[in-house]
């Protein structure tokens, strides 16, 4: 469960801005997907659901699925590669983003 990305409406007049230096928590307006050159791909055959990658993901983009595997939210993955490096079973591989288009 993660906060949803919402469209940001540019304020037209001064009263549209927050009245104090406070703002709604968990308010996301942009994604981080464009940061990535390599993307982690999970092999569900090899994954045993140890959740090591889930623990050490800096962005929290790895989540559990109902069948005790993991899935990745590519909207916010920055492609750091920690999950693939830490996976003891090599169930995650880093694939170059551009390769998919070829």
């Amino acid at each position: 469960m993660r906060p949803k990305v919402r469209a940001y409406k540019r304020p037209d007049k001064i009263s549209d801005y927050p009245s104090t230096p406070a703002f709604e928590s968990g308010h996301l307006v942009s994604k981080n997907a464009g940061w990535r050159t390599f993307k982690p791909v999970v092999d569900p055959e090899k994954c045993v659901g140890c959740l090591r990658c889930y623990l050490v993901c800096p962005d929290g983009v790895i989540s559990r699925t109902e069948d005790n595997k993991v899935e990745i939210d590519y909207d916010f993955c920055k492609g750091c590669g920690i999950c693939a490096h830490e996976c003891k079973l090599d169930a995650i591989t880093m694939k170059k983003e551009a390769d998919e288009d070829e």
Binding site: R2, G26, L28, K31, D59, G79
Partner: peptide, 12 residues
Amino acid sequence: QEFFYGHKACAG
């Protein structure tokens, strides 16, 4: 639940 999500920290 993720309480720290979508931040702009460096990769890794």
